[in-house]
Design a protein around this nucleic acid. Structure first.
Lengths: 205, 205
DNA sequence: GGCCACCCGTGACATTTGTCTTCACACACC
DNA sequence: GGTGTGTGAAGACAAATGTCACGGGTGGCC
């Protein structure tokens, strides 16, 4: 019966990747994909309806971030384990995933065979994390940026001017420059652009 | 015999995507994956050795770009059709793919089922292009940036200062600023960062 | 030859950006 | 109560950036 099968929810925005993973996992005898979503906002509602055993979540999604959804999911559906599957292993992503209550963290670089294995291990109560990535996350230290510094930096990603950022965050232009300067200092970079890069790299945004 | 099968070379950097696509295509009766590479530099040598009927190439790859490799492949192994498979459908990418002699252009957003179908159609001599994307490519017009403007912009992507860029491209700082100004003008943006974004968006880099 | 586009460079100028100092308020912690 | 941190803001200053006008050089095209 289906009670023997591991019910999996799959959240991934790239259609081809989502379809490929769904087909592959579907080939496994003990795994059943009960839902596929391509949007972060659909994760929690769909999970509440389908009640999967494992949620396989991408981080960068249209709508809500997979990390946000993960935290929500943990409290609303505690029986469901969360397995984060992401393109690049940013140390800060791993950290935030753990804080959000994720049971595992996989990078898309690895072999596909790992995926089904990880799902089974996660369901068995194990934590699945790439050892090298875990080391990097620990050595990188915690996020040094304050909330406001993050806000201002994220508003600066697309090349917005100080005035643009100030309007978006509802702050004085002078204040925005102060925060930008602080962020540049903390990231040990020379300008916004480098600060944004560094913060992104570390998963601090 | 294997002479009935379509021999496919797969170039894709994300391990999980590569593995998933290889497995899926391998399930098709008439398709055989004869080679998988994760690096742009390996495409042409591997193709010359394995002589595939179709090369399925990602664009953004470590080493050489899939578009560069495509052009090379067309002249060195004319019997091999090229099918570009990319994350995002930038109009300029499509244009360059066509100029490089590609027979098809697929975006990873689409359903997996399209992939095998596209391979068969390409082998039959058809061109496979998303109609909406083709329209966008035509309406976007050709790349307005000169070689030098592209060089300078690409050197500016990571937040480098004028001095950094000048050193990288071996130009005077003053000249660099002139080219940046020209690129900003042509992209109708307000600063480097926006210019880089716009140029990237259009596939002009 | 003239025209045009691209290349490379300079100098001047206004604007933007980044840094620093200083102020005030709130809140938490000891 | 004192100390520290985060938030919000201003002013002054140096450095970086973007714009413009202006040179000179090459090479293709009519």
């Amino acid at each position: 019966m289906s009670s023997e099968q591991i019910k999996v929810l799959l959240a991934e925005d790239q259609g081809m990747m989502r379809g490929a993973l769904a087909l592959l996992l579907g080939l496994e005898d003990d795994i059943e994909i009960v839902a596929q979503v391509g949007n972060g906002d659909e994760i929690v509602p769909t999970a509440l309806e389908k009640r999967p055993d494992v949620a396989l979540l991408d981080i960068e999604l249209p709508g809500r971030s997979g990390l946000d959804a993960a935290a929500d999911l943990r409290s609303r559906l505690p029986g469901c384990r969360v397995l984060i599957l992401t393109t690049f292993g940013r140390p800060g992503y791993l950290r935030r995933a753990m804080e959000a209550g994720a049971s595992g963290f996989l990078v898309k670089d690895g072999p596909v065979e790992d995926l089904a294995a990880a799902i089974r291990r996660v369901l068995a109560g194990e934590r699945v994390i790439d050892p090298a990535l875990a080391a990097a996350a620990l050595s990188a230290g915690p996020n040094p940026l304050t909330q406001r510094e993050r806000d201002v930096l994220t508003a600066a990603v697309d090349g917005a001017t100080v005035a643009d950022i100030a309007a978006r965050v509802h702050l004085s232009p002078a204040t925005v420059r102060n925060y930008l300067s602080a962020a540049i200092g903390k990231t040990q970079t020379r300008n916004r652009m480098e600060a944004v890069r560094a913060a992104r790299q570390n998963g601090w945004l």
